[in-house]
Amino acid sequence: APPGLGLAYRELNCDDPETEQAALVAVDYINNHSSRGYKHTLNQIDKVKVWPRRPMGEVFELEIDTLETTCHVLDPTPVVNCPVRQLKEHAVEGDCDFRVLKQDGQFLVLFAKCHSSPDSAEDVLKVCPGCALLAPLNDTRVVRAVEAALTVVNAGSNGSYFQLLEVTRAQLVPLPPSTYVEFAVAATDCIAKEVTDPAKCNLLAEKQYGFCKATFNEKAVGDAAEVTCTVFQTQPMLLQPQPDTNTPTTGVATAMPIPPSANLPAAAMVVGPLVV
């Protein structure tokens, strides 16, 4: 082929509906293909180049800024209904590079790379002096708070024993001195009231995930932990999201209260708030 042919990219407005459509599919892709952390939402499209692709179609090369929402990735709530983590809560942003193929009117993510980073402590304290900053997840106070909270969760469960999946965020609250943690759990084949050795428990074949928020006060008598958990209905894993999964209509269609699971007693679906 003569040199220079087919090497020109198409210029497109970052706020063009076609660019936004590709960006939303890309953000949907990372939310559907992450097993840890929180769902992210589109904040800003930084750059877009549209390259011709042989034999047909076009490839959207995108640079996107995202923001962390308060929904865990295992939470089936559509991301359009997930609140963005606010600055005073110590917001987290994502910087993403994507390549999205558009062919026959359908979008397909070819490449995705994201890096997330929390807002600076200076910025958080500027908008909210005295607010709790994100703490390292391996901090001993964080580990202790999660352990205490998990004990509370299982003490309140009339069904499965819940195993810790991951600690997703933690904050050391100055006043009153306490530790706030958020973590994901999964139901096991052990009964919470009967478990003797949690290490021998196995995750259920039909995975049952939950997400908990807890405040742990070490100074209080008896180590008080206040915990609220929500257990999600099992969600099928998608190998590749459909091009229209990001549309508001689809979001509304699935934005309904999570029905109780068939294999867990209703009382175990929402635990808390419990205080020990």
């Binding site: 407005n13 970052c14 936004e20 904040n43 800003q44 600055l87 917001a91 910025d123």
Partner: peptide, 27 residues
């Protein structure tokens, strides 16, 4: 190939430069 000067510039649609709008807030 003969090209009329100024033709390309005159016919090129105006594209607003990126980045696009901020939907929430900027960190």
């Amino acid at each position: 190939t003969a090209v009329e000067p100024g033709m390309a510039a005159a016919t090129r649609p105006l594209v607003r430069p990126c980045p696009g709008r901020i939907r929430h807030f900027k960190i």
